[in-house]
Amino acid sequence: MEARLSGKAHKYGKNVDTDVIIPGKYCNIIDPVELGKHALEGLDPEYTRKMKTGDVIVAETNFGCGSSREVAPIAIKGSGTSAVIAKSFARIFYRNALNIGLPIFESEAAVDGITDGDEIELEPATGKIVNRTKGQTYQAAEFPPFMRSLIDAGGLVPYVEKRLAESKK
């Protein structure tokens, strides 16, 4: 199970799309660290300069809308960002984030309660979000059971390996 994550909150608005998370011109990069240097560049060119490893992106509704580019969550993870908290996520981004192991938390209360710069502590296993600056605790929406089992299995790759092994028996 993932360890605790903690860092400062960087707060953004609604509909943060994949074009601003990682602009198209960088989509020919596959190295996570290289991609990470351009995370959120289209939205906040200062992001990678002002953030520190462990920091958390907090956003309103429909985070990650737009293209299916898996390099979007990879860039966020590659930048050292530990997680994204949003009121809701776009469908493909949600799936991609789980597949590549970027922790995501869905919580209206957390997004409303957190101010830019707050110190946040997260427990991916339980969905607990602690705002140390404000002394508040929020609970993220639970993952549907099937997804929980995928996460617990370590993601989609181990799941596929299990299926392959079964079919070869």
């Binding site: 299916s68 580019r69 898996e70 969550p73 493909i92 799936r95 991609n96 597949n99 590549i100 993601g155 989609l156 790759v157 799941y159 596929v160 299926r163 392959l164």
Partner: peptide, 14 residues
């Protein structure tokens, strides 16, 4: 429907 690359890798195989 569109998906990310890890899902596509799984579909390639399974």
């Amino acid at each position: 429907t569109g998906m990310g690359s890890t899902d596509i890798a799984a579909a390639f195989v399974l």
